[in-house]
Simulated assay, not measured.
Amino acid sequence: MLASGIAFVGVNGGVKHLGTDLPAAQSAFIRFAYGVLFFLPMLGPIWRKGFPAPVWRLFGWRGLLHVAAVVFWFHAMARVPVAEMSAIAFLNPVIVLVLAGLMLGEPLGMRRLLVVLAALAGAMIVLRPGFRAVTEGHLSQMAATLCFAVSYLFAKRLSQLAPPGVVVAMMSFSVTLGLLPLALWVWVPVDLNQMVWLGGVAGLATFGHYAMTRAFVAAPLTVTQPVTFLQILWSAALGALAFAEPVDPWVIAGGAVIIGAVSLNTWAEARRGLALAEAEAESVAP
């Protein structure tokens, strides 16, 4: 998950560098088309594998969610400072927490509800509505974060049904197909420099998704998600050094509130799981 986070910060820098010269749907399509080239040798074996119909449906739903997510994200990345993008993205595990609870039929409980409220307060510190303009870029990143959160739930489920490489390959295939009509609708000429940068973005993103899927196999979301919080430090440094974006203390503070809320919940969940395991061990002990 640490390697995945570093790769995605590199993706942020590449897309930020490209700016708004290319439409978001077209940039996203070219990035995922590169990903298809990386995984093209796997297409035949995947098809012959013959996954059950429910698995193919999960691949399809994840692809649709990721199409929406990446279009929103590419649109926001060119318009919002890198550190703010990362801070807003920290709401991802909070959304996962809420949605996973709802999908499993579990009540949020007072502690989880407080975590959600604290994280939303952190988001308000980052956005500061009423004190500055909340742009379409901010709203686009919020929409992307929601779509990515649901996509991660599908990825977690798929990681139990298919190898990590297959999960990432199917995401590349399905998202590229989904983005194709959107990209053709807004297509503009692309130069060699833009193609090279998008190729680099695709390589980093593909590696990041693969590393993330391997992390999902190795550990539960409550363990893997907090590691992504280091991204705010790297994102702030990237924005300051590469794009001359000032380090906004409000963004760092809001991100810290979200990080603190989710980290406390992760610690509490771990202690709860340990206590349940100990109680179960005592109940079966002779």
Score class of each variant (00 low, 15 high):
residue 48 R to W: 03
residue 187 W to T: 15
residue 75 H to Q: 11
residue 216 F to G: 04
residue 218 A to K: 05
residue 24 A to Q: 05
residue 77 M to D: 01
residue 13 G to I: 15
residue 54 P to F: 00
residue 56 W to P: 05
residue 280 E to L: 09
residue 130 G to E: 12
residue 170 M to D: 09
residue 136 E to L: 05
residue 113 L to W: 09
residue 244 A to W: 04
residue 26 Q to T: 04
residue 273 G to D: 15
residue 243 F to E: 03
residue 7 A to H: 01
residue 215 A to T: 14
residue 264 L to R: 08
residue 187 W to S: 13
residue 133 A to Y: 08
residue 96 V to Y: 08
residue 101 G to R: 11
residue 209 H to Y: 12
residue 235 S to R: 00
residue 127 L to V: 15
residue 156 K to L: 04
residue 172 S to A: 15
residue 84 E to W: 08
residue 281 A to T: 06
residue 130 G to M: 08
residue 186 V to W: 03
residue 157 R to E: 12
residue 213 T to N: 08
residue 251 V to S: 00
residue 207 F to L: 14
residue 71 V to P: 13
residue 160 Q to E: 15
residue 202 A to E: 05
residue 135 T to A: 08
residue 19 G to Q: 04
residue 41 P to A: 03
residue 152 Y to W: 13
residue 117 L to Y: 01
residue 190 V to R: 00
residue 276 L to T: 02
residue 215 A to K: 11
residue 235 S to E: 03
residue 236 A to V: 13
residue 39 F to H: 06
residue 57 R to Q: 11
residue 208 G to E: 06
residue 250 W to H: 13
residue 150 V to R: 00
residue 74 F to A: 02
residue 159 S to K: 09
residue 10 G to Y: 14
residue 206 T to L: 10
residue 126 V to K: 00
residue 208 G to Y: 12
residue 192 L to C: 02
residue 107 P to W: 10
residue 243 F to K: 07
residue 141 Q to C: 08
residue 245 E to W: 03
residue 28 A to Q: 09
residue 30 I to S: 07
residue 234 W to G: 15
residue 185 W to A: 14
residue 48 R to L: 05
residue 207 F to Q: 08
residue 266 T to D: 01
residue 264 L to C: 13
residue 115 V to K: 12
residue 253 A to M: 11
residue 209 H to W: 05
residue 249 P to F: 04
residue 150 V to P: 01
residue 33 A to W: 08
residue 268 A to P: 00
residue 111 R to C: 02
residue 172 S to W: 09
residue 269 E to D: 09
residue 183 A to Q: 05
residue 199 G to I: 04
residue 89 A to R: 08
residue 17 H to C: 04
residue 215 A to F: 03
residue 82 V to Y: 01
residue 132 R to I: 06
residue 179 L to A: 07
residue 34 Y to K: 02
residue 162 A to P: 01
residue 102 L to C: 10
residue 149 A to C: 12
residue 200 G to K: 01
residue 110 M to P: 11
residue 82 V to K: 07
residue 225 Q to C: 07
residue 283 S to H: 10
residue 70 V to A: 00
residue 120 L to Q: 01
residue 163 P to R: 05
residue 165 G to I: 06
residue 232 I to T: 10
residue 281 A to S: 12
residue 265 N to A: 12
residue 95 I to G: 01
residue 138 H to W: 00
residue 138 H to T: 10
residue 231 Q to P: 00
residue 98 V to I: 14
residue 236 A to G: 10
residue 29 F to H: 02
residue 121 A to M: 11
residue 256 A to T: 12
residue 264 L to W: 14
residue 58 L to T: 07
residue 151 S to Q: 14
residue 162 A to Q: 03
residue 57 R to S: 07
residue 53 A to G: 08
residue 57 R to D: 02
residue 245 E to Q: 04
residue 23 P to C: 11
residue 273 G to A: 14
residue 93 P to I: 04
residue 254 G to L: 06
residue 247 V to D: 02
